[in-house]
């Protein structure tokens, strides 16, 4: 898994499109629902974009711990899709929403917490993590999963 993050409108999508070719692209920004089961997806490259929006949906249904569990079950599924065939990779794009002032609304505070955990868990399991800063990538993790 390759996790690509950074602030809004920093050029994450353009960077991924420039870096990878021949992808199957699923975007929360285009109102796609969370693809938990990806087993029927062919090809070797799957891009999942806008995970913070899918995480927000979790917070409508679950408490923070449950959100984290559900998220990690998604990561399990995605990792097993990757492992099914050699050369497969999932690129996951998430917009960082965690560095503002504490939101006034409770649901937005919960969203921010859940997104923060989801990003941490994903980064820990990803082989590679890049931050995109106005079109420039900064690799903050490379070379494997933490145990």
């Amino acid at each position: 898994m390759h996790f690509v993050t950074g602030g809004a409108f920093n050029g994450k999508r353009a960077w991924v499109k420039q870096t990878y070719k021949g992808y199957h692209w699923i975007s929360a920004y285009e109102n796609a629902s969370l693809p938990i089961d990806v087993s029927t997806i062919e090809g070797n490259l799957l891009v999942l974009e806008g995970i913070e929006l899918w995480v927000k949906e979790f917070t409508n249904k679950y408490n923070l711990n449950e959100c984290r569990n559900v998220w990690n079950r998604c990561l399990d599924q995605w990792q097993s899709w990757e492992k099914e065939k050699p050369g497969r990779i999932i690129v996951i794009i998430g917009t960082d929403i965690t560095k503002g002032i504490v939101p006034v609304e409770k649901e937005n505070r919960r969203w921010r917490d859940a997104a923060g955990w989801a990003f941490q868990d994903l980064a820990a399991r990803a082989e590679k993590v890049d931050i995109i800063w106005y079109g420039i990538n900064h690799t903050i993790k490379a070379g494997g999963e933490e145990e």
Binding site: G7, A8, F9, N10, L53, D96, I97, T98, K99, G100, I101, P103, N108, W111, R112
Partner: peptide, 9 residues
């Protein structure tokens, strides 16, 4: 300023 790392939706 860095102001793009919070919810904008």
């Amino acid at each position: 300023n860095e102001v793009l790392n919070e919810p904008i939706f």
